Structures are given as structure tokens and as C-alpha cells.
Simulated assay, not measured.
Amino acid sequence: MIVHAREKWAGRVVLVVLMLVTILPFVSLFVTALHEPGTYPRGLEWPETPHWGNFVLAFQSANMPALLASSFLIELGVVPIAVLIATLAGFALGHLKPWGSGAVFIFFLLGLTLPFEGIITPLYFQVRELGLLNTRWAIILPLIGLFMPFAVTWMRAHFVTMPQDLSEAARVDGATTWQLFWRIHVPLSVPAISSLAILLFLWTWNQFLLAIVLVNDPEKRTMAGALGAFQGRYGTDIPLLCAGSLLILTPTLIIFLIFQRQFVSALMQGSLKG
């Protein structure tokens, strides 16, 4: 019992330390954002007069309403399509398992090793040939393709654990493959699908590289991509830059806090089945 109690407290201490290490950068950003514009704050020193107006100034200077609208349009173009394709492919590879599904799955696994930075140059020329440069499609279409390896692997890992007896019983009752997918497996896959949607939402929102390379107009980029233009304008104004960064991070934090139960539920479901 004593050893068990020690392990329990040791685990809690480690979690607290990790939590502090994770939170510390955000605390530093917040404290720095409250300093007088144009100054160079040192450490975590709380300013004598907090400048809350920095957030308003950063919001107005970066034209945040336009950036929010652009980001949500890109999200609507990426997340639903990517989740739909990944769910269909994951169901086929993980549950139906047609001939050659193993080779296709290996192909998707190889895609997980492909870094965005390694394909940005050929992707630029391809998007240019399609006439999509400086449009939101230049971000939407590549992201759907680049997200597929992870998304399909995620959904396959879920469907491969679904019992075959359930499908066989539905087949006996006369269910078609589409009915089997839509009426039985999709309702049972809501935690996995919602968690994937959350991850893709966060990754799309924070996409920086594709946005600054393929789109010149900051108002057609994602929020994170627009930070590059904001940094170019206020790169020497550290408080305003920190305020802008926090404004960009806030929506992703809100989304995660709202849907954290679904995300944890999917992870727990996968671990229990595994």
C-alpha cells in the first residue's frame, strides 16, 4: 500500500510539473501582452499599468473580423470533406477489407512520413498551374490531401475494432453495405469522428506554411498564416505581437475546451478496445 501511494503521488507531481511547463509559455505571452507598446519586457514581470488596450489595438490592426471569416471558410472547406473521405476509406480498409486493402493501408502509412516542408515547392508550382494561387482553394485542396494519411489511419484503427458479428447480423436482416455503414457503424463511431474533426480543425486553424507560401493576400489566409503579415508590420513591437498571438490562439482553445469530453472519450474507447 505504501509503494502504491508513493507511485500515486509521484504520478501527480509529474503531471503538475508537466502542466506548469505547458502553461508557462501562455502566461509569459499574456503578461508580455499587457506591457506598454514598443517596450521590451523582461521575464514574467507584471507591468505597473496593464495595457489591456493592446488586445483591442491588435484586433483592429490585424483586421481580425476578416481573418476570422477567412479561417472559418477554409475550415468549412477542409474539415467536413476530409472527415467524410477518411470515414469512408477507414470503413472500407478497417471493416470491409477488400482485396489489396493491406497494400493501400501501407501506402497511407508512408504518407504519414511526408513533411509539409518537403513538398511545398512542387506543390507551389502545381497550384500555380491550376490557377489557384492567392485563393483559399490553394489552402483547402492541399490540406485535404495532406490530412488523408493521418485521418484514414485514425478511422481505420477505429473500424478495425468493430465486431464482425454486428455486421453479419445486419447482413442477415437484409442491410446493404451503405445501410451497414450509415445506420450502424457511423452512429457507433461518433466519438472517433468528432475527435478527428477536432484535430483537423485545430491543425487547419494553425496552418502557417501553406498559407504564407500559396496565398499573398493576408485576408484570404488562416488566422495563423495572417500572423506573418502582422509580424512584418509589428515585428519590433513585442507586446502587440504577443496580444495578436493570443487572439489567434483563443478560438482553438475554446473549441478544445468545448469538445474535450468527446476527444478524451475517443482516446479512451480506442485504448479499451486495443
Score class of each variant (00 low, 15 high):
2 I>E: 09
5 A>L: 12
5 A>W: 07
8 K>R: 11
8 K>C: 12
10 A>R: 14
14 V>C: 08
15 L>M: 14
19 M>N: 06
20 L>V: 04
21 V>T: 13
22 T>G: 14
28 S>E: 13
32 T>V: 12
32 T>P: 10
32 T>Q: 10
36 E>P: 01
37 P>M: 11
41 P>L: 11
42 R>K: 01
43 G>P: 12
44 L>R: 13
45 E>T: 13
47 P>D: 01
47 P>K: 10
49 T>D: 13
50 P>H: 03
52 W>S: 07
54 N>P: 10
54 N>T: 03
55 F>D: 07
55 F>I: 06
58 A>Q: 00
59 F>D: 06
61 S>A: 09
61 S>L: 03
64 M>W: 10
65 P>R: 13
68 L>F: 10
70 S>P: 10
71 S>Q: 13
72 F>C: 02
72 F>N: 07
73 L>D: 04
76 L>T: 11
77 G>D: 08
78 V>W: 04
78 V>K: 08
79 V>Y: 09
84 L>S: 14
84 L>V: 15
88 L>S: 13
88 L>E: 13
90 G>P: 02
91 F>W: 01
94 G>C: 03
96 L>F: 03
96 L>P: 12
97 K>P: 11
103 A>F: 11
103 A>D: 10
105 F>I: 10
107 F>W: 06
108 F>H: 07
110 L>D: 08
110 L>M: 07
114 L>M: 13
114 L>Q: 10
118 G>D: 15
120 I>A: 10
120 I>W: 09
123 L>T: 08
125 F>Q: 09
127 V>C: 02
130 L>M: 15
137 W>C: 02
140 I>T: 06
146 L>H: 11
147 F>C: 01
149 P>V: 07
153 T>L: 03
154 W>H: 13
156 R>A: 09
157 A>E: 02
158 H>W: 05
159 F>E: 04
159 F>R: 01
162 M>C: 06
162 M>Y: 09
162 M>R: 00
162 M>A: 03
165 D>Y: 08
165 D>A: 15
166 L>G: 08
166 L>Q: 05
167 S>T: 06
167 S>L: 09
177 T>N: 09
179 Q>F: 00
188 L>D: 12
192 A>I: 02
194 S>N: 14
194 S>H: 06
195 S>E: 03
196 L>D: 07
197 A>K: 00
198 I>N: 06
200 L>Q: 02
201 F>K: 13
202 L>S: 05
204 T>D: 14
204 T>S: 14
207 Q>S: 05
211 A>W: 14
213 V>L: 11
213 V>Y: 07
216 N>K: 12
216 N>L: 11
216 N>P: 01
217 D>G: 04
218 P>C: 09
220 K>R: 13
221 R>C: 06
222 T>A: 10
225 G>L: 14
231 Q>C: 03
231 Q>T: 02
232 G>T: 01
237 D>C: 00
238 I>D: 03
242 C>T: 00
243 A>P: 02
245 S>R: 12
246 L>M: 08
247 L>D: 00
248 I>H: 01
249 L>Y: 07
250 T>W: 07
251 P>M: 05
252 T>M: 01
256 F>C: 04
263 F>D: 04
264 V>K: 05
267 L>K: 05
269 Q>S: 09
270 G>W: 03
271 S>V: 15
272 L>D: 12
272 L>W: 13
273 K>H: 12
274 G>I: 09
